[in-house]
Design a protein around this nucleic acid. Structure first.
Length: 152
DNA sequence: GCCAACGTTGGC
DNA sequence: GCCAACGTTGGC
């Protein structure tokens, strides 16, 4: 089983929204590295840190889980979607997405500031210079530590 | 809104 | 294949 961090702007899709709908396709990823993690590495039951970016505060807002393997992202075929991709075909879709299900909302967001201040988390990909990747692998030890901090 | 860092595009 | 121009991400 693998561990992941997945970013979303809460104004677009938040942990509250996921809690309400219970599960959702993780649509809109248009970065090949992030897509490849979903297509090639994610398995059902993998654990996910749900990260709010461009938020107040930004940070890990809760936990989720991979509910289904990657399938073609339907938004790439929607002409009027922000995520439409004219170069993608149904025979050979360019963008794929897994399905994510709600697990837990933290009582409060574990802020980026708190994560940065914790020495045990200093090696996280999230904290690397210029990090922009919206889906990234997380070490189990970091995942567990974040879950522990959030419940403390 | 600013801007550093990064990814993508396209001319050559 | 190089790389300048451009677009996007995301913290602040």
């Amino acid at each position: 089983m693998n561990f992941w961090l997945m970013k979303s702007e809460p104004s677009d899709f938040s942990i509250d929204k996921l809690a309400k709908v219970r599960s959702s396709l993780w649509t809109g990823v248009r970065n090949y590295q992030a897509r490849n993690f979903m297509m090639q590495k994610m398995a059902v039951k993998d654990a996910v840190l749900f990260y709010h970016s461009n938020a107040n505060p930004s940070g890990v807002a809760g936990l989720a889980r991979v509910a289904a393997l990657a399938k073609p992202d339907p938004t790439q075929f929607e002409k009027h979607s922000d995520y439409h991709d004219a170069k993608s075909t149904r025979e050979n879709p360019r963008w794929w997405c897994v399905e994510i299900e709600f697990v837990e909302k933290f009582a409060q967001v574990l802020s980026l500031e708190t994560i940065k201040a914790d020495n045990f988390l200093s090696g996280m990909e999230l904290l690397k210079r210029g990090n922009r990747l919206s889906i990234q692998p997380v070490d189990k030890k970091h995942f567990d530590h974040i879950a522990k901090l959030a419940r403390a």
